[in-house]
Simulated scan of single mutants.
Amino acid sequence: MRYKIGLLLLCLACPGRLLAQSYEKEFGVAFAWEVKQVDEFIERFNNDESSFIQTYLKKKAAAGPPTREKMLKSLFNAKGTNWNYGEITAFIKQVSRADHPQYLNFDEANWFAKVRCQLLSHGKPAEAALKLSMLTLPDGSCKWVITDVEFLGKTDLPAGPAAARPRVHGPVPPDPRVSLNPMSYAIDFMNIDLVTKNPANIENFVSSAPDRSRSLELFIDGCLRNQFKIVRATSISYTFLQIDGWLIEVRQFNRASLNSGWLISKLVKLS
């Protein structure tokens, strides 16, 4: 009884301190579970023992770390309303098979970012979605390059079929060092305006594939003519095609929840 009275007096005397401690504890747990970057998403998807969440759980949890199945479930947007739970179960079962586990790989192909941007088209506000993939250079370094462009809404574009337009070639970039750093994802592509900052460097930022899409060619042509200027990135998603038979889309969900950060927003079973 004396102990309970003492505890009550302590709570009445130091309510602010106790609330602060409770908040700090809850914030710490939420921060640990938040998937802060796409590379952390990959680590958690792969159940990497060196990942931030695994390190946290080893220090805090009395029981053993969660299984890969549970970790995968935590990566789905729990507030999504259009999930096919049968497909999710089949996906998790396939990925976590003991005899043939499947993983995501940051350094391999078959994944890309889609960055929606505000831009100026002939001086007028417009929007475009840039598809970017990681390109490995001969020296082993990497950079993001634009592989396609989707113009959103009304944008002034030249008319005519792609076959009637010759391939657009930008000049040899005066500064070959200017590019989208591979860590651009960590700053949510805040540096995306570099693409159109100096039109002479445009070839540093786009794919050199011989079969570039017409929309990408139009974008390059517009940049060379100073008709397009990227203002900023407004939203980002990532798409992974590295798991056999599945498409995974990842988006950021900012909320005060253990289920927050970069999470699976769409799962599509490919035929």
Rank of each mutant, 00 (worst) to 15 (best):
M1A: 13
Y3P: 06
K4Q: 02
I5N: 08
G6L: 04
G6N: 09
L7C: 04
G16W: 05
S22F: 14
E26L: 14
F27V: 03
V29W: 11
A30Y: 13
A32P: 09
E34V: 11
V35T: 09
V35L: 09
E43H: 12
E43A: 06
E43Y: 14
E43F: 05
N46H: 09
N46D: 07
D48W: 02
S50W: 05
I53V: 07
I53F: 05
Q54H: 15
K58G: 15
K58I: 10
K59R: 14
K60W: 14
A61P: 00
A61W: 09
A62T: 13
K73R: 15
N77W: 15
A78N: 12
N84A: 09
N84H: 11
N84Y: 05
N84T: 08
Y85K: 13
T89V: 13
A90K: 01
I92Q: 01
R97E: 13
A98W: 09
D99W: 07
P101C: 03
N110P: 13
W111H: 13
F112E: 10
A113Y: 04
A113S: 02
K114Q: 09
K114I: 11
C117A: 01
Q118N: 09
K124H: 06
K124C: 08
L130N: 00
L130Y: 03
K131R: 07
L135S: 01
S141W: 03
S141K: 12
V149I: 10
E150R: 08
E150C: 10
L152T: 01
G153W: 09
G153A: 14
T155F: 01
D156W: 09
L157D: 06
P161S: 09
R167N: 04
H169M: 11
G170C: 09
P171H: 03
D175M: 08
P176Q: 00
P176T: 05
R177K: 02
L180Y: 01
N181W: 00
M183G: 10
I187K: 03
V195N: 00
V195L: 03
K197C: 14
P199N: 00
A200G: 00
A200F: 02
E203T: 01
F205E: 07
V206E: 00
V206D: 01
A209V: 04
A209G: 05
A209F: 01
P210E: 08
D211C: 03
S215L: 12
L216C: 06
D221S: 08
C223N: 06
L224K: 01
F228K: 04
I230V: 02
I236K: 00
I236C: 07
S237A: 14
Y238G: 04
F240I: 00
Q242F: 11
G245N: 05
I248A: 00
E249V: 14
V250Y: 10
R251Y: 11
Q252K: 15
F253A: 10
R255T: 15
R255E: 15
R255K: 15
S257L: 12
S257G: 07
L263V: 05
I264M: 07
L270M: 13
S271T: 12
